[in-house]
């Protein structure tokens, strides 16, 4: 009994080390910030976006988010701008307009009030709603948070726009201070209930960190890494939007 248990334990540990070893080997290849397919697949759909593209109408995107939707002093390098550039490139035949409405320091519930007004002002085809970070930092009751995004998504859908939810950043340095899981879970639930695509920024960034594309633990000063991460996010998000609108096959040739 005893030796066998020990052997099992040793084998488990060895297997673990072997797995990390092979993970290290992969890290040697230069970072490409590729996103595995399953992180970009969604059951949600974007009918309004699909319709606009098929009828060659302009695509108007509104990004509503908090401070993690921008990079201080270099907004043009943040993911919304990169998303616009990528969409323009992939949809050369139609104009792509994009505007960003930052709601710094506001919880989902506080953003709720301005959502419909923003939609009336900008009349977008698609609203990309990045949320959860402020709520997690203020540890808002997850039930209240769920109600807030539920109401917000419903209001947006009633206003006749497509919605994409974007969740929190993966932030290993603040993991001991900000508890992300309840907010990630609730966003997933709401997205599922409304059939809205959820761009899992958290999982994607964690994947990049694990795969060695970016060392998100690093105490890097300066905006260089932030710009590269946002460029990758913008590209992934454009692919995600087109996939969710089921436009990939039709438009990419």
């Amino acid at each position: 009994m005893r030796p066998r248990f020990g052997a099992v334990l040793a084998l488990m540990l060895l297997a673990g080390l072997a797995a990390t070893g092979s993970a290290r080997a992969q890290e040697a290849t230069p970072p490409t910030c590729e996103v595995p397919g399953y992180l970009l697949s969604t059951e949600g759909t974007l009918p309004k976006v699909a319709e606009a593209v098929k009828n060659a109408r302009p695509l108007t995107v509104l990004v509503v988010g908090s401070r993690s939707s921008t990079i201080a002093a270099s907004e043009a390098s943040a993911y919304p701008a990169k998303l616009q550039a990528a969409l323009k490139e992939k949809l050369p035949s139609i104009p792509v307009n994009l505007s960003v409405e930052l709601q710094n320091g506001k919880t989902a519930e506080e953003v709720d009030h301005s959502l419909v007004k923003l939609v009336e002002a900008k009349s977008p085809t698609l609203v990309i709603w990045q949320t959860g970070t402020v709520d997690a930092m203020r540890s808002v009751d997850p039930d209240d948070f769920r109600t807030a995004i539920d109401d917000g998504v419903a209001a947006l859908q009633n206003a006749g726009v497509d919605v994409v939810l974007v969740n929190l950043q993966y932030s290993p340095r603040t993991e001991t201070m900000i508890s992300a899981p309840p907010y990630l879970d609730n966003m997933r639930v709401v997205a599922q209930q409304h059939g809205v695509p959820l761009f899992d920024r958290f999982a994607i960034m964690r994947h990049w960190n694990d795969a060695g594309d970016f060392d998100l633990f690093s105490t890097f000063h300066g905006t260089d890494m932030a710009k590269r991460v946002h460029a990758c996010l913008g590209r992934a998000l454009s692919k995600f939007v087109l996939d969710a609108a089921r436009l990939d096959q039709a438009q990419q040739n």
Binding site: S66, R67, S68, I71, A72, G105, T133, V134, M137, Q169, S171, R173, T174, M177, I178, L216, S218, T219, F220, H221, G222, T223, M225, A226, V229, H230
Partner: peptide
């Protein structure tokens, strides 16, 4: 950590400090 960490990618999250 708060006094040493200034990654602009996480300027929002660092508000927790």
């Amino acid at each position: 950590v708060a006094t040493r960490f200034e990654n602009p990618l996480y300027s929002e999250e660092m508000g927790i400090m």
